[in-house]
Design a binder for these strands. Structure first.
Lengths: 144, 144
DNA sequence: CCATATTACATAGCAAGCTATCCATACAAG
DNA sequence: CTTGTATGGATAGCTTGCTATGTAATATGG
């Protein structure tokens, strides 16, 4: 009858995400990175020179959130923003050498966090778990 | 070889939590509630008159986070804080009538969000999913 | 061509997470 | 009892989310 938070997917999702963020922060802060910056770098390591709009679409955050995160990354010397040749509204986001050098250590840190997090799941369950997360994400996006 | 965010449990956890928060916000904002306040109310509906310390332990957030959330809840007329009789450092957190009246509509909203989120999972997978979330949470807490 | 729409980005302000500090009170050891 | 430590809470300041709004540039319809 009463609502049990430890049985609520939404509550567990929040708790899990906070723990993941803390675990990642512990491992990448020594690199001078924060989790929000890391996810931007994931996209730029894959394809450099994206616009803010591209990043917003790929990471599914609001434009204002991305603008602020990019400001902090520029302040920290991770990216540079240069005007787009064809569209003067847009600014291309490019990695600095410093950011390029962080790819290997930062992705290793994230891989280790994921491995530890999933360590208690039966090996066969790990892929199932990712699929379920993706299914829930798809359902929530459809509901939006 | 390269790190794929759509296969990273940590990234998916963050994305899922943001979508859950947005879905819950849409449904409880009309009640004058925000998600962080809702999770405090879940504990107080179960047991009124807890201290800040109790809430910190039960919800696994930092003391400073709880202090700020309780300040907003007091400002919004959801709780009142009264000095503890036995320990003058502590302040008992008590629900207002307004907060008590929100239990049914707010838990209904959260139940509906959970149902929609899990709608795409096979019925038998839904309990499995919660167990897996709890397993990941336990692993991350142990790592901390 | 020009008025209007839309698009790309910036800014302000709020919530909720965090760490680091500080204060006041309580408790425990000498 | 006094002194040192532990505990409950408050406060400052940061990141990363969000909404709402403003501005400049582009695209479009008549």
């Amino acid at each position: 009858m009463s609502f049990d938070k430890d049985d609520s997917a939404g509550y567990l999702a929040n708790h899990m995400a906070r723990l993941f963020a803390a675990a990642l922060t512990r491992r990448i802060a020594p690199l001078g990175l924060m989790p929000g910056q890391f996810m931007v770098l994931l996209e730029l390591w894959r394809e450099d020179g994206l616009t803010q709009r591209d990043l917003v679409e790929r990471l599914d955050v609001e434009q204002a959130t991305m603008a602020n995160t990019l400001n902090r990354m520029e302040r920290d010397g991770l990216i540079a923003r240069a005007p787009d040749a064809a569209d003067r509204r847009a600014r291309r986001v490019r990695l600095t050498d410093r950011a390029r050098a962080l790819e290997a250590p930062a992705t290793e840190a994230a891989t280790e966090v994921n491995a530890r997090a999933l360590a208690r799941l039966a090996p066969g369950d790990r892929a199932r778990f990712s699929e379920m997360l993706q299914g829930v994400i798809a359902a929530l996006r459809a509901d939006r």
